[in-house]
């Protein structure tokens, strides 16, 4: 099994649901970065993404960095990104890092969709 597997599907409202499964660490963050670069190339404007982190057991700073920087890039193109499904351990790290304003998170998918903002380009 690969260290990280990334799948996607389109849900209601044209929102992309992205689900990485595995470890998002110093060896795999580049896979997620490349995935998002390809996704943004396919859908350059108004991309709306919710990332399901329920299958992720570990996120190192490099993984958080990809999620934060991709949200910034997507927002610049009038889109948005939020995350959901963190387990208690990941939530503890997320809370300690105080990045909630830069990377909004929800417990479930529906709430994560509601967190997506309509951003003017």
């Amino acid at each position: 099994m690969k260290r990280i597997e990334i799948s996607e599907e389109q849900i209601v409202g044209g929102i992309q649901l992205v689900k990485p499964v595995g470890k998002l660490d110093v060896f795999t963050f580049i896979d997620l970065k490349k995935y998002f670069e390809e996704l943004c190339a396919r859908m350059p404007q108004g991309l709306k993404v919710v990332v399901d982190l329920s299958g992720v057991e570990y996120i190192a700073s490099s993984g958080w960095s990809v999620l934060l920087s991709r949200r910034q890039a997507i927002q610049r193109q009038a889109g948005d990104l939020s995350v959901f499904g963190m387990n208690d351990n990941l939530r503890r790290v997320y809370d300690s890092m105080k990045i909630d304003r830069m990377l909004p998170s929800a417990a479930g998918q529906e709430d994560a969709v509601r967190l997506l903002k309509v951003v003017q380009p």
Binding site: V26, A60, S61, S62, W64, S65, V66, L68, V93
Partner: peptide
């Protein structure tokens, strides 16, 4: 700190 290798993010963490 959102550099490609995430190093600064690590120190921030």
């Amino acid at each position: 700190m959102l550099d490609p290798d995430g190093r600064h993010m690590g120190l921030y963490m």
